[in-house]
Amino acid sequence: MSNYQDKLNMHFKGKVAVITGAASGIGKALAIKLAEQGCNLALVDRDIQGLMSVQAELQSYSITCVIEDLDVSDKQGFVDFSETVIAQFSRVDMLFNNAGVSLIDSVENQSFEDFHWLMNINFWGVVYGSHAFLPYLKKSPNAHLVNVSSLFGLLSLPLQSAYNSSKFAVRGFTESLKMEMAGTNVSVHCVHPGGIKTNITNNAKISTEHVPKSQILSDFNKQAKTTAEQAADVILQGLINNKRRILIGNDAKLLDRIVRWFPATYEKVLGFEKGVLAKRQKQ
């Protein structure tokens, strides 16, 4: 067994992890990799069929896995689920607030209904999950609270104002919580994935007023170089190394540097306004 595998096994065996958005993508990959290390799981998603499939896939491991159809934007639902988890396992050691949705539209065109829908899941879901499970995490000898932001929590793009808002908010909330947990047994981590091969963009609410949906999906799928499994590996390694900020993918690492080098002009350096200007010139 490699040194990395030894560390995984020592860090996660016998623990209890809660993962939101666990029916697919990074959430599912985390569930499988933690199960491989003997970690018990409490998985939630709105896709109950997907969750049942993941649960069935994990039956070969010597762990307990419970699943629940949970809307993370439901505050009381999260509280009730935390009590269910404690009743089942008597402990919680890790929380991965991973569930998220995407909305691609202009500020002028997008509806407040869509904006609220996204914020309720991407931001309030993180807040509700953190509040519901933090009292139990504080009782664990070595706990991790992991909130998934995005590369778009480090920089902004046109047509991503709602998504940017939610992911910048997750980042601010998580970094503040990390400071508040200083000196405790709870390590707090903010994850910033770049382009990951998941269905979040394929399932996004997309306005076709500005850019054809097919072009958006094609461009994203070309740029998404990192698999969900690779992302899960980076996240778990980040927990072992107690990293506050976990960047996933070379694209996230490079763009993070550019934003720090050119904080006031990165949109010009990266050409983010070219498409907007070209469209305006045609009008």
Results as ranks from 00 to 15, higher is better:
275 G>F: 05
21 G>K: 08
162 A>M: 09
26 I>F: 06
236 L>M: 14
250 N>H: 13
60 S>L: 13
201 T>I: 15
48 I>R: 15
244 R>E: 13
133 F>E: 04
238 G>S: 00
157 L>T: 06
109 N>I: 08
163 Y>T: 11
215 Q>N: 09
4 Y>M: 14
163 Y>C: 05
121 I>C: 04
15 K>Y: 02
241 N>G: 02
175 E>D: 09
100 G>F: 11
80 D>C: 06
8 L>H: 10
188 V>H: 11
54 V>H: 14
137 L>P: 01
25 G>V: 01
30 L>R: 07
50 G>Y: 09
133 F>S: 02
260 R>H: 13
122 N>P: 00
251 D>V: 11
164 N>I: 12
34 L>A: 14
179 M>E: 13
2 S>E: 11
195 G>A: 10
183 G>I: 09
108 E>C: 07
257 R>D: 10
166 S>W: 09
171 R>E: 11
94 M>T: 11
222 K>A: 13
84 T>N: 07
132 A>C: 03
130 S>I: 06
264 A>E: 08
133 F>D: 01
63 I>S: 14
95 L>S: 03
282 K>L: 12
32 I>V: 15
221 N>A: 12
154 L>P: 09
72 V>T: 05
256 D>H: 07
199 N>K: 15
238 G>M: 00
158 P>G: 08
145 L>C: 03
148 V>K: 05
137 L>E: 00
149 S>Y: 05
236 L>C: 02
249 G>V: 07
106 S>G: 12
167 K>T: 07
241 N>F: 03
156 S>Q: 12
63 I>H: 13
